[in-house]
Design a protein around this nucleic acid. Structure first.
Lengths: 70, 70
DNA sequence: GTGTGACTTCTAGTCCGTA
DNA sequence: ATACGGACTAGAAGTCACA
């Protein structure tokens, strides 16, 4: 399982658990709505700066978004 | 402290603790020697795929490379 | 063995739209 | 609210020569 897919799945999971839409998360992280969408579908090879933006918008540690399912 | 700097510092720390040169790590991760160098100097906004390559070459979980100093 | 500037190629990331 | 496409621009990937 690639980190890219783990990240994508965790991102969606945490985002929805916080009740955020993709649009809302995009706004909070100053990223584009369609970009968040493509990241969650693991189409994009996201950079560390943007990973941090997303984690920060979700108010969690970046490592939380890289934690595989048990 | 940005994730980028944390990653850079941890990368260098783990690499040297394993006795690897930048050249050796570059070879193991199929990245260029000077690229590894620039990442360790946090000059590059590295992507998740390359982060994974480096973690894999060091035989550790990617999250280990994002762990801040205590 | 590593740092650095300069460079080209390629893709990350934006912005428009449709469904 | 989300997926997805096309077209575009900013910037990452990747390499090199030299210190």
């Amino acid at each position: 399982m690639s980190s890219r897919i783990i990240f994508a799945n965790r991102l969606r999971e945490v985002r929805t658990s916080k009740g955020f839409s993709q649009e809302k998360l995009a706004e909070l992280s100053t990223l584009h709505r369609t970009y968040v969408s493509s990241v969650e579908r693991f189409e994009r090879n996201i950079t560390i700066d943007n990973m941090e933006k997303l984690a920060s918008a979700l108010e969690i540690d970046l490592r939380e978004l890289l934690k595989p399912y048990e």
